[in-house]
Design a protein around this nucleic acid. Structure first.
Length: 565
RNA sequence: GAUUCAGUAGCUCAGCUGGUAGAGCAUCUCCCUUUUAAGGAGAGGGUCCAGGGUUCGAACCCCUGCUGAAUCACCA
C-alpha cells in the first residue's frame, strides 16, 4: 500500500500526538450539550457550551486562529486564542497540537463560550479542546462564498456513490435529500397509522417469487436444500394477512429484481404496499391523492414540486382517465373492441414494434407506454387496464375485458399502482393459468403459480383494495432528483477493481535486501522498470536517494545491484 | 446489451500539430491575536485508469480491457 504525501503526514501527526500523551482515538464519551445551527439560531452571548464535530476549516494567524466545526446539524465557527487555551507557560496545546497536529476532517471536542466577532459572526471562543478522532485521509475541500457559489465541489459521481460517507460530509445538499426521504416515509407511516392500518413484515426469502412479473434473484438454502428467491413483490403475503383478518396492512418493502440498471432502476428498491379490506379502487384513488398531498407538504412544506423543469401540483384531487380513453385521446385510435390482429395493425401504423409473444393486453400496454405515458406531467390516475396485464386484479364491474386497476402517473412516470383486488379464487386460478400460457409463449416475465396463495383465497378474502407506491421514485419527485442513485445511500455499483499494487516482496524476490526493498520500490515502482534500467545507473540513483533522504542503511555496492539483473 | 463521452496531484480542472506535466484549493516551512471562498513569502507532491501497438519520442495517435456517465434497448 502506498500512501500519498498527505496521508503520510497525517500518520506522522498521529504518532506525535501519542508521543505527547494524547490518545487520538479516546474511549470515553464526550459530553456534548450543544449543536452548531442551534447556537446560530439562538444567540446567547457568553453562554458556555460543549460541542463536538469535524474540524472543516483551519485558518492560523499567528497567536490566534479561526476554525469551523461541522456537526450533525451544520457548521459553526470556532476561535482559538493561544493564551486562552494555554494560560500557563506551556503553549504546546496551541503551538503544536492545534497548529501542527490537527488536520481538516479530525473530530475534536470543544468547551467554550459564545461570542460575536468584529464582523458579527457567531463564534465559539475555545477554552479547551480535545482530540476525539484523527482522520488519516484528507477530505475534498469544498468552499463556498457569501453568495453561495461553490468552489472545487466534490462532483465525480463514481466517487460520490462509492464513498457516500465523503459525499455526505462534504456536500450538504446530499444529506438534505436523504433527510427528506425519511420524512416522506415517516409522513406516510403517520397517515396510515392514524387510520389504524397495521405495519407488518413479510418474507424477503420466498419459495415462489410472486406478486409481480419480474426476473428474480435466486439463492439456495443449505439446510432445507431448496432454492429460494429474493422477493420481487410482497403482494401475495399481504393479501394472506387480509385473509387472516386484518382490516388494513402495509409494509415498506425492499424488493429485488434481476434486471437492467439505469437512471430509474436499481436492483434493490423500496416499495410501500398497503391493502385495505372492504374498499375498492375508487376509494383507493381518494386515499392515494390525499396521502401524496400530505406527504409532499410534510417533506417540502408545499404541495408544489419542480422536477425536470416541470412545475407539478400535488394538490388533491388528481385527474382521472381510463387507459382506453387516453389512447383514443393521444393516438386517435379506439382500441376498445379490437382483437390481437387489429391491435397489431394499430401498432404497425404507430411505428411500435411487436412480436409473437405479445398478447392483447401487452399490445395495449405498449401503445399506452409509447404514446400516452409521457404526456402525464400533472398527477393523473390512469384506470381500467386490460385484463391480460393484471392477473391479480378484479375484473371491471362493467366490462369483463378490463380490470379495476389504476396507475398514478406523475411527471410522465408511474408512481403508484393499485387494484380492487381479485378475491375470486376460481377466477384467480384461471388468470394464473393464462399467465402460464403466456410464459410458454415466451414471455419470461409471466407470473409463477402460488398454490398456497390460491388456498388462502379459497378460505375467503373480503373485498379489498391494494396499492403499491415506489418510494425511490416518489423521493426523486419530491426532491427534484432525476437519478435514482441520488436517493439511495448506496446505489448498486460494479465492484471496484482491485489495483495490482507492487509489493516490497516482489523486489526481494530478485535479490534486493529487506532493508532496501521499500526504497527501491519508492524509486522504481515496479520490478520491470528497475530491470529495464542499466545497473550502473540504478546503483547511482539509489545511493543518491540514500543520501538525499539521509537513510541510515549502508550504501549499495555496484556488485549488489548487478546481482539483481 | 449497443452507441457516445470521460478517467491527469488529496479535490476541481488545464495541457496546442506527438517533444517525457501545470494551475487553484489542500499539504509542508516561515511570518501574522477577531479572519472569512483565497493574508504574505517559500517548498514539496504525479505508474497522466491498465495492458499492448505506431514512433527517435505518447497524457495526447491506434487496438484491447477496466470503471463511470449520458442516450437507446430492457424494465407489467
Amino acid at each position: 500500500m502506498s500512501l500519498s504525501e498527505q496521508e503520510v503526514q497525517r500518520r506522522k501527526s498521529l504518532e506525535q500526538l501519542r508521543e505527547k500523551g494524547i490518545e487520538p482515538y479516546p474511549a470515553a464519551l464526550f459530553p456534548v450539550n450543544a449543536f452548531s445551527s442551534e447556537l446560530q439560531a439562538n444567540y446567547q452571548e457568553g453562554k458556555k457550551v460543549t460541542i463536538a464535530g469535524r474540524l472543516m476549516r483551519k485558518k492560523v494567524q499567528g497567536k490566534a486562529s479561526f476554525g469551523e466545526i461541522q456537526d450533525s446539524k451544520g457548521r459553526i465557527q470556532v476561535y482559538f486564542n493561544r493564551d486562552e487555551i494555554c494560560p500557563d507557560e506551556d503553549k504546546s496545546m496551541y503551538n503544536d497540537v492545534f497548529k501542527k497536529l490537527l488536520d481538516l476532517g479530525d473530530f475534536i471536542g470543544i468547551n467554550g463560550e459564545i461570542f460575536k466577532t468584529q464582523v458579527g459572526e457567531i463564534t465559539i471562543k475555545v477554552e479547551s479542546f480535545e482530540v476525539l478522532s484523527k482522520a488519516l485521509k484528507p477530505l475534498p475541500v469544498v468552499k463556498q462564498d457569501e453568495k453561495g457559489n461553490v468552489f472545487d465541489a466534490f462532483t465525480d459521481p463514481e466517487q460520490r456513490y462509492r464513498m457516500r460517507y465523503v459525499d455526505l460530509i462534504v456536500n450538504q445538499e446530499v444529506k438534505e435529500t436523504f433527510v427528506k426521504r425519511t420524512k416522506l416515509m415517516n409522513a406516510m407511516r403517520q397517515f396510515f397509522n392514524e387510520r389504524e392500518y397495521f405495519e407488518v413484515e413479510t418474507p424477503i426469502l420466498q419459495p415462489i417469487p410472486g406478486g409481480a412479473a419480474a426476473r428474480p434473484f435466486i439463492t439456495h438454502h443449505n439446510a432445507l436444500d431448496i432454492p429460494l428467491y429474493l422477493r420481487v413483490a410482497n403482494e401475495l403475503y399481504l393479501k394472506r394477512l387480509i385473509v387472516g383478518g386484518f382490516d388494513g396492512v402495509y409494509e415498506f418493502s425492499k424488493d429485488f429484481r434481476n434486471e437492467g440498471m439505469d437512471r430509474t432502476h436499481n436492483p434493490e428498491f423500496t416499495v410501500m404496499e398497503i391493502y385495505v379490506a372492504y374498499k375498492d379502487y375508487f376509494w383507493m384513488m381518494d386515499f392515494t391523492e390525499q396521502m401524496i398531498e400530505q406527504a409532499a407538504i410534510a417533506v417540502n412544506g408545499t404541495s408544489t414540486v419542480t422536477n425536470g423543469g416541470n412545475e407539478i401540483s400535488l394538490k388533491a384531487p388528481f385527474k382521472r382517465i381510463s387507459m382506453l380513453d387516453s389512447i383514443k385521446e393521444h393516438t386517435g385510435f379506439d382500441v376498445s373492441e379490437m382483437d390481437e390482429k387489429g391491435l397489431k395493425e394499430v401498432c404497425a401504423q404507430l411505428d411500435i414494434p411487436t412480436d409473437d409473444s405479445m398478447g392483447k393486453g401487452k399490445l395495449i400496454d405498449e401503445i399506452f407506454g409509447e404514446k400516452c405515458e409521457a404526456n402525464y406531467i400533472q398527477p393523473t390516475f390512469i384506470t381500467d387496464y386490460p385484463v391480460e396485464m393484471s392477473p391479480l386484479c378484479k375484473k371491471h364491474r362493467d366490462n369483463p375485458n378490463l380490470t379495476e386497476r389504476f396507475e398514478l402517473m406523475i411527471n410522465g412516470k408511474e408512481i403508484a399502482n393499485a387494484y380492487s383486488e381479485l378475491n375470486d379464487p376460481i377466477d384467480q386460478r384461471e388468470r394464473f393459468e393464462e399467465q402460464l400460457k403466456l410464459s410458454e409463449k415466451g414471455d419470461d416475465e409471466a407470473m409463477f403459480i402460488d398454490q398456497d396463495f390460491l388456498r388462502a383465497l379459497e378460505f375467503g378474502m373480503p373485498p379489498t383494495s391494494g396499492m403499491g407506491i415506489g418510494i425511490d421514485r416518489l423521493t426523486m419527485l419530491l426532491t427534484g432528483q432525476t437519478s435514482i442513485q441520488e436517493v439511495l445511500f448506496f446505489p448498486q455499483m460494479k465492484p471496484e477493481p482491485k489495483k495490482v499494487v507492487p509489493q516490497k516482496t516482489d523486489f526481494e524476490k530478485i535479490g534486493v535486501s529487506e532493508l532496501w526493498s521499500e526504497h527501491v520500490m519508492a524509486v522504481y515502482g515496479t520490478v520491470e522498470s528497475l530491470t529495464s534500467a542499466k545497473p550502473t545507473q540504478v546503483h547511482q540513483m539509489l545511493n543518491g536517494y540514500r543520501k538525499k533522504n539521509k537513510l541510515t542503511i549502508d550504501a549499495l555496492q555496484l556488485a549488489d545491484v548487478e546481482a539483481w539483473f
